[in-house]
């Protein structure tokens, strides 16, 4: 057997090993229920509850945002994010959070927003009729 083949096989072996052990880094999206079961940070998808309080008072603490989110199971929880409030937060269609449950609240360290793409919407702008 050639050395190259040997090295190739070792690499394939490592690749298979890495892919199989990457299982802990790859998971389905969690929900609040499954987040309660684990100490590890999880990713949760949900939507913002728009009629409940969104608290962000930069005068008090520019690194504190709290709001309510509903996960895919329909469970609603208060979320606390240790960062500022992103631009267009209220317009978000869905939210992906990374964090842990603590008590009744979800403490998020990362938040990704999916916003409706404003610039390709069906609404066509007309020039104002006056003048």
């Amino acid at each position: 057997m050639k050395k190259i083949h040997l090295i190739g096989m070792i690499m394939i072996g490592i690749a298979i090993y890495l892919i199989t052990t990457a299982g802990t880094e790859v998971a389905t999206y969690a929900n609040f229920e499954s987040a309660r079961q684990t100490d590890q940070p999880v990713k949760i998808v949900g939507t913002l509850v728009k009629d409940k309080a969104i608290v962000y008072d930069e005068m008090k603490d520019p690194n504190y945002l709290s709001f309510y989110m509903v996960d895919d199971n329909g469970e609603e929880r208060k979320v606390i994010l240790g960062k500022g409030k992103p631009n267009d937060f209220e317009l978000s269609e869905s939210i992906v959070l990374t964090g842990k449950m603590k008590g009744d609240d979800f403490f998020a360290s990362e938040m990704l927003l999916k916003c409706p793409s404003k610039y390709t919407d069906e609404e066509i702008q007309l020039k104002s009729q006056e003048g």
Binding site: E58, P62, Y64, G82
Partner: peptide, 13 residues
């Protein structure tokens, strides 16, 4: 100490 300790405070006013 309001939030998790590992969370970095990134913003100031």
């Amino acid at each position: 100490g309001l939030l998790n300790d590992e969370m970095l405070k990134e913003n100031v006013i």
